[in-house]
Design a protein around this nucleic acid. Structure first.
Lengths: 308, 308
DNA sequence: TTGTAAGCGTTATCAA
DNA sequence: TTGATAACGCTTACAA
């Protein structure tokens, strides 16, 4: 059993600098105008000598501000989430906050667990990356009274700031692209719609565009066996003259066959904005609850160019 | 400016249950045998009524144990890192620890920043996923006196527990596979070797295997312009009869062309073991510093099957 | 079986 | 300009 040396405390510093804790605290909090040059120097020296770092635990306890922000992610292995995370992380750093990341692995119990956990560490706000999160899980979040911002997905009947993609615009862009490229039958694939706003918005835009092109067959399918049936109904044989556009850019999209056309989301930007919004709430902003959407970008590759 | 209701404290609970803080604390810490059934019930009720959650800040301050573990990752967008992270996260949860994840983005300054940050939150130990981390950065870590475990990569001249892949075995497997499949000229590609043990170990195993096959041409190259030169020297034209094996399994490996053969690392397992090792150190284990290696698995796809 | 009081490392109040 | 001193919410001797 080895035992590590205890950290230096503010009292140690005060003692080494032959002064009181108050002055050291002032030094730490930038109230330098209250300190004589001499005292300032002594404190500086003592801190260096003891390589003292203030305890955020004690600080948080006393001030009630922990400078901690919680991030709840449904699926940490999702590339979209990783990108968003990266944006949030950068924004946190810039604003002097620290991120407590939690991965719920799409499990309801974990969701609860982490929500309580974050609360017990007194995070000042949370960002929820709801991509892939099941609905019954999201509803738990409503209980939390913390400043909170959702990413990508809204929670039905729960007013909350949301930052995400302009789904309608993006779906419209993608749909028109296919039509313009001469495809004569379109299939819209989606996970079960449920009350997930992103899916509904994309589908609605798709249908809207379709009304302008009565000659183009179209169909909607949930990602189940129903897909096969729909393919059959629009008389399309998988593997021959079929186009493909996916939401979310993928690292390997250019490598798979002729390349897959994707609709790229400004993920980093989304993460960054979400964080700024939480911080605004933490600082007490009472702006009306809002939805902030960003435009996507269509990255055209071989999969949406008709074969000759 | 909205103001949120203050959290209930242990005193509030004690008051509501008509008892003292001590009993509530005992209840919270599972010392139930010391409480009468009646008192236990009152406390339970009060906690529920106030939806009280103990403050980990105060707890950590008092006990000196924060149940926090820091994770330093060089590149959060690296799929390998994400997998490892996932394993660590699961192990943390099981052991009742919470993870503070930090992404250094391969930047030296951030490394320093996060090291101090983790220390100021009094994490009880750290795991460093050094994949992609520059050497001069790793050396900063030596300063930390915390229980620490490295993943994948060692730090030169710094004795520390390491968990990772059995690089020699893996490189040997991959090399033999190529030879067995009839390739007659092998090229070993690597980032600059530097003093990075993983790269050196893999290269050494490669050379070792090569001594057994004098008829097979081979060459080593750093991932620079030198690659082109080496390709030329072994008289190989990129695009025709060339095989490929990559370290680390990739989600899309099967989708790219004929598929890319990869050497899959047991990433999750590695993360999990690393965490268990840190915890052992936290609990005071003074086992000798050790290196724990796992075997990789060769996932054979088209890229290592010779074209006819 | 229950409760009182001291103290963890900070910051805030107030007096010197 | 400085510095005691009292909290912050919890755990833990120690008493009762």
């Amino acid at each position: 059993m080895k035992t590590r040396p205890p950290r230096a405390t503010i009292s140690d510093v005060a003692h080494a600098a032959r002064t009181g804790k108050t002055s050291v605290s002032r030094y730490l909090n930038g109230e330098l105008h209250l300190l004589s040059a001499d005292l300032k120097a002594r404190i500086e020296q003592a801190i260096a000598d003891l390589s003292y770092r203030p305890s955020q635990m004690a600080r948080g306890l006393k001030r009630g501000r922990t400078r901690l922000i919680g991030l709840i992610i449904a699926d940490i292995t999702n590339p979209y989430s990783v990108d968003v995370m990266s944006g949030i992380e950068a924004a946190c750093r810039e604003q002097g906050f620290t991120l407590l990341m939690c991965n719920t692995n799409n499990e309801v119990d974990l969701e609860q667990h982490y929500l309580q956990l974050l609360s017990s560490y007194q995070v000042e706000g949370i960002v929820v990356n709801a991509v892939g999160m099941r609905e019954e899980v999201l509803s738990h979040l409503k209980q939390s009274l913390l400043p909170m911002v959702l990413i990508d997905r809204k929670i039905p009947d729960f007013p909350c700031d949301v930052v995400g993609l302009n789904n309608a615009e993006a779906a419209e862009t993608a749909t028109r692209h296919l039509v313009d490229n001469g495809y004569y039958a379109l299939l819209f694939l989606s996970e079960p719609l449920g009350s997930v706003n992103t899916r509904r918005e994309r589908l609605q835009a798709f249908r809207q565009v379709m009304t302008a092109y009565p000659q183009v067959q179209h169909e909607n399918a949930e990602l189940t066996l129903q897909v096969a049936r729909s393919l059959q109904r629009i008389n399309l044989h998988w593997g021959s003259d079929i186009g493909l556009i996916g939401f979310d850019e993928l690292e390997w999209a250019a490598l798979a066959g002729v390349g897959i056309t994707t609709l790229k989301q400004p993920t980093w930007q989304i993460g960054c904005s979400a964080l700024q919004r939480v911080i605004a709430r933490i600082e007490g902003s009472d702006l009306p609850i809002a939805e902030q959407v960003f435009s996507g970008e269509l990255i055209v590759r071989g999969s949406s160019q008709p074969l000759r």
